[in-house]
């Protein structure tokens, strides 16, 4: 049996389907300390081999002392963060301006991501903040909402370059006779800078600027450092 479709299919093996995703590069990194948490990201935005922008921030202060980034396909990342902020505002309306706990924020994000299980947000999401006891908290998510609280996590293009370094330097993996301890903010900041300058050396989609957001009980503050632009 033949039809228009089968005729086309047999003669032309070219795929013309619209691809709704792209990869916009960049990498992010979250580390929790004893009474603080940081979430850092480079500001390079790419498609393919092109640098679209050298400064397109992707780590955001979303309110209630929570910082958030969704790295990967930036259109989905931006939408996810906007959606989160919208939900947060309704949470405030409905709960008399009550602050959203970071654990509740994490559960909310799971639902936002899983809600698009069959057309996923193509992003690696990380949030950071303080938990109910004032301890630093980092939560990381896969594209469809599986999540976990961790001491540290790298996401995005250079995640595979940074993560082993973090295992060694934050969780003291493969270091003999090194007991686990909290790192100070200064130690963490210098780790973050080293991680990003190294990733910039080795990964073409990472570079230009490093933006670090730091959460403490005083609030959120931002630091900006240059990275190599090549």
């Amino acid at each position: 049996m033949s039809s228009d479709y089968s005729n086309i299919k047999d003669s032309a093996p070219i795929e013309h389907r619209f691809n709704p995703y792209s990869d916009n590069g960049g990498t992010i990194l979250g580390i929790a300390g004893e009474d603080f948490a940081v979430l850092a990201g480079d500001t390079r935005h790419t498609t393919g081999y092109s640098i679209n922008s050298r400064y397109e921030p992707k780590v955001f202060d979303v309110g209630d002392n929570i910082i958030m980034s969704a790295n990967g396909f930036s259109a989905d990342g931006n939408s996810l963060i906007t959606n989160f902020k919208t939900n947060l505002q309704w949470y405030h309306f409905n709960n008399n301006e009550e602050k959203l706990k970071i654990s509740s924020a994490a559960r909310l994000i799971q639902h936002l991501l899983y809600g698009k299980r069959f057309f996923p947000y193509y992003v690696h999401t990380i949030i950071a903040g303080l938990d109910e006891n004032g301890k630093g908290a980092v939560y990381s998510f896969d594209p469809v909402g599986s999540y976990e609280r961790e001491q540290c996590r790298a996401g995005g293009a250079a995640a595979s370059l940074i993560m082993p370094f973090l295992d060694n330097q934050v969780n003291f993996k493969n270091q003999a006779n090194q007991p686990l301890r909290y790192l100070s903010l200064n130690e963490v900041l210098s780790l973050v800078k080293d991680a990003f300058s190294s990733a910039t050396e080795r990964h073409i989609h990472v570079g230009d600027y490093l933006e670090i957001l730091i959460v403490t009980k005083e609030g959120v503050r931002t630091e900006l450092y240059p990275l190599k632009r090549d």
Partner: peptide, 20 residues
């Protein structure tokens, strides 16, 4: 795709390689 970014100089298409 809904991808958005800002920069002091911008271009679409071939301009990304020739004009930027």
């Amino acid at each position: 795709l809904g991808v958005e970014y800002a920069s002091p100089a911008l271009s679409t298409g071939f301009g990304n390689y020739l004009a930027i």
